[in-house]
Amino acid sequence: MANKPDDALEEVSQTTELSPELIQFKTLLESTFIDVELAFVMTDQIPSVVVPKESLHDLCVFLKTNSVYDSKMLSCMAGVDYVDYCQILYILYSVENNCTIGIKCNVEYDCKIQTVSDIWKAADWYEREIHDLYGIEFEGHEDMSPLLLYDGFEGHPGKRDFPFYNYEEY
């Protein structure tokens, strides 16, 4: 399970043909971000890109201002713990074009990631939530105080190794 995204990626590129939406998405991004290593997968029915965390911010700005993927709304932001690293999923939506795209970014637990709360205000609380649950630091975020957990809570309950029961109550 630990290296699942890579397996899935191989599977997609080898066995199945890329859907037209993903090809379009891929062509556009690869022509813009030439020297960045991007991988393209389908998340369910959503064309998604796996992006290294260094160029995440630029990619987000590009997708927000781009005319094809006019992604003005950050619909969802989810963190998934893959033991070695945390994958952060951004689901972007364009109200005008009615299209959804996803961005995936893998972050090691001792690394920081750039905030996107300056691009979408909606990311503000999502990032604080992910910080609570996974302990990911977001660089440039104004206020990283706990949102869902109380002040002084120890541990990160989103992680797989956090116990369901038998932890110390507040």
């Binding site: 619909s75 969802c76 205000k121 909606a122």
Partner: peptide, 13 residues
Amino acid sequence: RLKVRPPSFCNLS
């Protein structure tokens, strides 16, 4: 992993 995008959460922000 199960993540919910709660509408109230975003509306409240």
